[in-house]
Every structure is written in C-alpha cells, then in structure tokens.
Design a protein around this nucleic acid. Sequence first.
DNA 1: TTAAAAATGTGCGTTATATCACATTATTCT
DNA 2: AGAATAATGTGATATAACGCACATTTTTAA
Lengths: 226, 226
Amino acid sequence: MEKTICKFCNLKSAAAKKLNEDEICALGNNCAEVQFKTGDIIIKQDALSTNVVYVKSGLVKIHIKGPIKERIRKIIKAPAYLCLPSTFGDKVNHFSATALEDTSICFIDVNVFKQFIYDNGDFAYQIILDLSKGELQNFHSCLNNAQKQNIGRVADAILFFANEIYNSNSFTLPISRQDLADLTGITRESASRILTDFHNEKILEIDSRKITVVNEALLRQISEKG
Amino acid sequence: MEKTICKFCNLKSAAAKKLNEDEICALGNNCAEVQFKTGDIIIKQDALSTNVVYVKSGLVKIHIKGPIKERIRKIIKAPAYLCLPSTFGDKVNHFSATALEDTSICFIDVNVFKQFIYDNGDFAYQIILDLSKGELQNFHSCLNNAQKQNIGRVADAILFFANEIYNSNSFTLPISRQDLADLTGITRESASRILTDFHNEKILEIDSRKITVVNEALLRQISEKG
DNA sequence: TTAAAAATGTGCGTTATATCACATTATTCT
DNA sequence: AGAATAATGTGATATAACGCACATTTTTAA
C-alpha cells in the first residue's frame, strides 16, 4: 500500500477526539485527522467503530489479545491503511493499534469511503491490489513464524526494522523486549537471551534499545537457516 | 467472500487447459471454466500466470513451500476467489493450489476483471470488504496456530472441517495425516498420536479418514484451553 | 538526587514436541 | 488376487524453548 495517499482528509474535517479509556473511536461524519503521541492507543480491541483508518505519518503496532497471550501482529509504517470497512463488519474492533512514535491518523467515515470507491474505479482497483498483496505477504510471514526457530525469528525482526522501517543498520528499537517477544511469538527471556548471543557473536552492537547491525550477512544466514 | 458469484464466466469462453508439469496456467483472454478432479494441481507455485482465479464449486487447499517444509495455508470452499490480481504482481505464483474434491475453477483475464471493477462500484466495494475481512481472519488463525499447543490446533482443525466445511459431525477427512500436520504446523507423528488420543478419550470416532465428532463440547474445551 | 518501579538479563529444572526407527495397515497397480 | 508401494501408528530418545526465580540495570517520579 506504499503509494496510496489519503484522498479524504482534504474533504471536510469533523470533530475529532482521542480515545479515552472507555471511549469509542468512531467519528460522526466525513473525515478527521488526529495526532497521536508515542504510546497512545489509536484503536482499541473490542471497542465500537465505523471508520476507515489511514496512517498518514508515523509508526504503529497492531496487537491482539490472543487465546493465550498478547501478540503483535505487525508494525505498520505510514503511509498505509490501518483498517478498512469490513474490519468493522460487526462494528467491533478485533485488534488494537498503538503509536510507536508520534503519528498522524485519518479517520474516514465509511460512507465517504464507499462513495469514493464508487466514483473512482482506479482507486478501488489499487486498494484491491494492495489488499490482495498484503494477504499474500501475511501468508509468508506466518510461514516464517511457524517454521523457523526462535533465533531465526529474532533475526528476521531485526532485519525487518533495519531494512523495512529505518533503512539503516543503526537504529533505536521502538519496542520493548517483551514487545519483540510478542512480535516474534517467543518469550521475553528467549528474546533477551538471543539478543545477548547476537552481541557476543559480534553480529549486533547493543546498547539498551540502540541496535547496530554489525554483521548483516551472518544475520541473513541465520534467518535463512531458520 | 461467501456471497460472491462468478460474474465473468457468462461473458466469453477462451481456450482452457489444465496445468501440466511445466505448463503455465495463464489463459489468453477473457474467461474460461475448467474442471479439476480430486488431486489435480490447479495453481503451481513459481509458475507464471496472469489470471484472477475463482472457485465456482468444490474444495481446494492452498499450500506453500515454506523456508523449511511444506505448509498448508488454508482450505477454500466454493464459492470464493482463490487469487486476485496482485497475487500475480510479479506474474509468478507464490503458492500452489490443489483440488481436494472435484472442483470447477474459473480463470478470469485480469483485464476483464479490472474493467469490471471500473464499471461496477458495488462489486468493487464487496471485493474490498471480503479481502479486508479475510485479512483479519488470517490474523486470528495465525494467532491460534502460534499460541496454541498441538492438541488445541488439531482440535481446531477437526472443528473447522465439521463446522465450516461439512456442517456435520460426521465426515470424511479430505486430506491425509501428513496434510493435517502441514495444516496445523505440527509433525505427522504428533497429528497421528493426537487423533488416537481423541479416539481413546471417546471424543472422536475414527475409521481411517472417516471421522465422527462424538463429544464436540470437550473438543471445544480443548480448543479453548489452547 | 534519590527512592521506587519497571524493564531486562541469566541460571536452571521441566516439558512439549520433534526426530528417529520400525511395525502395521491401507492403497495401488499389474 | 497378490505384490509392491504408500500411508499410518507407536515406542524411545533428544532437544529447543518455556517458566520460574532472582539479580541487575534502566526508567520514572517525587
């Protein structure tokens, strides 16, 4: 969904408010742009809603209360849709979203979005392409998680942040060790141990959350081995 | 994607052929309906293609060569789209599809599909709803697989066939034990053992691939426990 | 600046599950 | 029908990873 832009926020702006504890993130009509700060909850699992949500700028984690424990499903980097109409099919969110850095979010009324689809075939087609592609990518990320061992998954996560999010071998991890564990589906202790191992083997330079990939080739090798 | 019907197969019918070993499943133009028998390969991973593929009737498994081993991603029951345009973004399939029973497949030229999107906003919107919903369902099925133990996953798979595919507590499993293992991400031996356990605990009646759910309540309980 | 709270690191026993080896049962083919 | 082949069942190990306990470090708040 890389090349999509929010075509709606220029339309009208409705009254917008951030999500409080028991509040609902649905807006009345049309579209509104809202600023979130690091750590703010953007969408809350099980809350009611009827908006299309678009990440205009920033970084967001999608997380879900699984059958056993919390799981981070993915990290979304702007610009991208965070959720589309049927995500709210029953008007209840099935996931939460939290800002990992200062983030600007567009809430688009689902009827506005629908009308836009009707009027703009090329836009509709692009959305379909993006969704279909995303679905396929899910396939493969699930596969990775399912088949690789813990060490390979952590390697993947580090490479993901370096290459997909920050385009740099040196970055500050935007999430905690626990989050890294929840993202890769392992325990906090295992995540911690593996990072230490990577440091000892001179694959990573680690200073708390500051990470530098020293030996990317080896990291890739670990990822591929599974 | 339950309520969608193939709106294309009434247009024109092009020359259609089944997939041979090294053959390509792409059709020239427009749309063609092709019959497949149980076990036939419908789509082959890494083959070239430029079609939208729609399952008009039958049952299909989507499987992928993972980084380590084969994995069954999901079972698709007609009517449903098997793949959409961007699945072929690079014109190479990233998965295989195999018929689990006699199946009728529509291959739709991507340009025909695109034009239809342009002309029919309601259709486009419906596709978007379906895709978005499917993506979310993937979320949760991944979660299940990731967090539950083997026994819970097998319980899920059995419940899936009973409730989603056959709507009956008595059915013939359309896949082998190995496939069941690949579907749940466990080993063949584990799958086998768990089925035997279920039989001993009088949860299932098992006669080779014929399965009867005797104690669905207990099966659900196992599924929920993880 | 210091105390309290949160996050992280690390050793160790336990356990679920993979892996290996082989027996048994189905299925296919001639 | 009978042989060959494939699929399935099952015991005995090996091992990756979890879970627990607690030490240490970092962050937050007062």
